[in-house]
């Protein structure tokens, strides 16, 4: 009986902790968003964050997208050939890349690269009193550190996903035409005819949400880190794990919103 009660108590504590943490993240996000729209604005910090999140993530996102497109073409060809539907490869590649794989894989790669770096940088600032120093110099840390990164994340990821979409489709096209013997013009025509504006737009909308979530978790975990190097390490891990899980959870929610009839 005592063991059962302990288990119930532990579950209750975990639920309360999860609710409290969710509330804290929501308040942090609301505060960060409000600072995006209230002066002073830190344009240089925004551009620097945009460069860091967007431009410097290009290689990793590009490689992920092109290989994913290639694998997708190969796998769908192998699968569809069992019931003579090889012609649908172009449709599957473009639909999968623009709706799902482009935003989700780009989001996960950027979460690993940028979310971790953000948490480590802000966490180090926290444990070395640099965030307190900002406050004593009449500078709101939320406005200076968090708002530019949230905005940059929200803008940078859709731009990356545009590149990921193009390269993902290109990867599928290359494998289909060079290795699987598809006609180049037919493949492109099928791709262009099949893809709809909504497919691309929904992917870009997802990317904007994922970019916001990555920056939010990086900033939140870093901002609230404590306990020296170990605390910063823990914050970095938490930022990547939390952002990755949120990307997958929100992917489902957004897909339900955009496409469920």
């Amino acid at each position: 009986m005592a063991t059962l009660l302990d288990a119930v108590a532990a579950t209750g504590r975990a639920v309360i902790h999860a609710c409290r943490e969710t509330g804290k993240v929501a308040i942090f996000a609301a505060s960060g968003i409000s600072h995006i729209f209230r002066p002073p604005f830190y344009g240089r910090l925004f551009l620097s964050a945009l460069l860091e999140i967007g431009f410097f993530s290009l290689p990793v996102v590009a490689l992920t997208a092109i290989f994913t497109g290639m694998v997708l073409a190969l796998q769908s060809y192998t699968g569809f050939s069992r019931f003579s539907a090889e012609g649908a490869v172009a449709n599957v590649v473009v639909l999968s890349v623009t709706r799902e794989l482009g935003p989700v894989l780009a989001g996960l790669m950027v979460a690993g690269r940028v979310g971790a770096a953000m948490a480590a940088e802000i966490g180090t600032m926290r444990v070395t009193d640099q965030i307190d120093a900002l406050s004593t110099l009449s500078t709101n840390p939320m406005k200076y550190l968090v708002a530019p990164r949230l905005l940059a994340g929200t803008i940078a990821l859709p731009l990356l996903v545009v590149v990921a979409d193009i390269l993902g489709v290109l990867g599928g096209y290359l494998i289909s035409t060079v290795k699987l013997g598809f006609n180049s013009a037919n493949y492109l025509t099928r791709t262009m005819n099949f893809v709809e504006t909504m497919d691309v737009a929904s992917g870009l909308a997802k990317a904007a949400v994922f970019g916001f979530l990555i920056a939010l978790m990086g900033c939140y975990q870093g901002y609230n880190s404590k306990g020296g190097a170990q605390g910063v390490g823990a914050a970095t891990t938490s930022a990547v794990v939390a952002a990755s899980i949120l990307i997958l959870a929100f992917d489902y929610v957004l897909t339900e919103m955009f496409f469920a009839r």
Binding site: E121, T128, D129, Q130, D132, A133, L134, T136, S138
Partner: peptide
């Protein structure tokens, strides 16, 4: 309150310089 506190300067124990 912010205006009053803006009149305070602080030297932190470890300097707390912005390394960026």
């Amino acid at each position: 309150r912010a205006r009053a506190r803006a009149r305070i300067g602080m030297l932190f124990q470890n300097g707390a310089l912005f390394d960026s």
